[in-house]
Design a protein around this nucleic acid. Structure first.
Length: 471
RNA sequence: GCUCCCUUCGUCUAGUGGUCUAGGACGCUGGCCUCUCACGCCGGUAACAGGGGUUCGAGUCCCCUAGGGAGUACCA
């Protein structure tokens, strides 16, 4: 049997991390078994579905690299097929028309709740032969006895009493089919062998199995993955910030980091934390997914992101960094140092691309003002002599490369009988405005000679003004 | 309310009756390295929800309780 999995989001919002993880698991399972991965858009809720959402989901999938082999299929384009199935069910007496009013249903629910019962349709229209021309919905005639067992690859066997299930609506009064009918028809028609989906669908599964059986189809294997909770253990929501996958790109995360983070949420392979895509495909197994929900931990994602930034090819990072520099009004291609060299210098210093852009901006443009603490600590009168001497030495230096630069700064320190830090720190603040940058030699190299000399003058002026102000 | 699901360090997890005085990772923290920051390296912190069983022996099996979650829609 060839494995065929699917990801079936409803386009009522962007792709969030929970959906992304479900998609990842489905994708991995298909890839691992040399199977097929299908994307299906479940847009039968005409009210809430939007094309913007469809695009957002597609964009998210693409960014993560979860390419699908078939689809996207849209359920709204398959209404004829659903109607055909519904008609067949009606013919065979496995479904029936119902014209119960909302008021009646409402009253029924309240009554049942009052008697501490589970609210469910009472089968009022089961044998009433409602006129097809009158407004009505169509309900599935659920078996009244027996049990349905969901044999879940993650949960094990979960049994439901048919008596607990009621006759659900499979076609609305406006003629559109509902979720529980469409999934079942689509999964069967598309030959889905493994349904890997969110935990919230576990309770729907027995109903779906019943419909499947009515259709004379064999149920697929099911795997219900637990949901993802926010940092605080509560349900993941907008409140938790970046829940949209695309927001992570905005925030400077690498797709490989997010993927790696997501695959480890609820799944593990011994003590291994870092997985390449190939390793994931090789080692992943749906049976190893945990049953318990897990909390999203941004700190760990950040750590993984830094890990991937560190070990990636600087050219690759530079390519991804460029747009973030652009947001700061910098076009690295225009002038200034080679962005790849900047990345090499900053690779171990940034957890995100956004952060890397921020700490690298001074290589390309004048910084507005000094970091207050850094200036207070390092641009003091005692720094005047080191800066003046450094300026002289650097102005004389023609070979503007890290090694000679290092020697030049070290020589100034020696000549003044100071520690390297006493010269390097004022210099660092002078040329970058901040207290932390890559090594002073690389920093000066990347800033360039003209800007270095200019900024040292600016710093010396700053020191003079400060001295004047305090006297 | 009812049905179903879940429960190991703060978080992600290892653990499938004895090797668990419970391992790894993130975080936090002490130190080393060092021109700053970071990286790296060495060390520390911290958990089997509670109670009953079963067993020579339970984190591992069973039951109960508690706490979380999902569903209970003419949403998906």
């Amino acid at each position: 049997m060839t494995v065929k999995t699917r990801f079936a989001p409803s386009p009522t919002g962007y792709l969030h991390v929970g959906g992304a993880r479900t998609a990842l698991f489905s994708w991995l399972y298909a890839r691992k078994h040399g199977g097929t991965f299908v994307l299906r858009i479940e847009d039968t809720d005409l009210e809430r579905s939007t094309t913007d959402s469809v695009n957002a989901i597609l964009e998210g999938m693409t960014w993560l690299g979860l390419e699908y082999d078939e689809g996207p299929f849209y359920q709204t384009r398959r209404f004829d097929r659903y109607n055909e199935v519904i008609e067949d069910l009606l013919q065979r007496g496995l479904a029936y028309r119902c014209d119960c009013s909302k008021e009646r249903l409402e009253a029924l629910r309240e009554e049942q709740m009052k008697h501490k019962q589970k609210p469910r349709y009472d089968g009022h229209c089961r044998n009433r032969h409602v006129d097809a021309d009158a407004p009505h919905v169509i309900r599935f005639r659920n078996p009244m006895e027996g049990i349905v067992v969901v044999d879940d690859m993650i949960r094990g066997k979960v049994a439901y009493d048919n008596a607990e299930l009621d006759d659900l609506i499979i076609r609305r009064s406006d003629g559109s089919p509902t979720y529980n009918l469409t999934v079942v028809v689509d999964d069967a028609d598309m030959g889905i062998t493994h349904v890997i989906r969110g935990d919230d669908h576990l309770n729907n599964t027995p109903r779906q199995i019943n419909i499947l059986r009515a259709l004379g189809k064999e149920p697929p294997r099911y795997a219900h993955v637990p949901m993802i909770l926010g940092d605080d253990g509560a349900r993941l929501s907008k409140r938790h910030g970046a829940v949209s996958v695309m927001q992570y790109r905005e925030d400077g995360f690498l797709p490989e980091a997010l993927l790696n983070y997501l695959v480890r949420l609820g799944w593990s392979h011994g003590d291994q934390e870092v997985f390449s895509l190939d390793e994931m495909i090789e080692l992943f197994d749906i049976e190893d997914v945990n049953k318990a929900p897990s909390s999203f931990n941004t700190d760990k994602l950040l750590w993984l992101n830094q890990h991937y930034i560190k070990q990636s090819d600087p050219k690759h990072i530079a390519h991804l960094l460029s747009p973030h520099m652009g947001k700061l009004g910098i076009d690295p291609a225009e002038d200034g140092p080679d962005l790849v060299e900047v990345v090499e210098a900053q690779q171990e210093r940034a957890k995100t691309l956004v952060e890397m852009a921020e700490i690298s901006a001074f290589f390309y443009k004048e910084f507005e003002e000094y970091d207050a603490k850094a200036a207070k600590k390092h641009l003091r009168p005692v720094a005047q002599a080191p800066l003046e001497r450094a300026r002289e030495a650097l102005e004389r230096l023609d070979d503007w490369r890290p090694e000679p630069l290092h020697k030049a700064v070290a020589d100034v320190a020696d000549a003044l009988d100071l520690n390297m830090g006493k010269v390097a720190q004022p210099l660092r603040v002078a040329v970058s405005g901040r207290a932390a940058t890559p090594g002073i030699d690389v920093t000066l190299y990347l800033v360039g000679k003209d800007a270095t000399l200019r900024r040292i003058d600016r710093a010396l002026e700053h020191i003079r003004q400060r001295a004047a102000a305090s006297s």
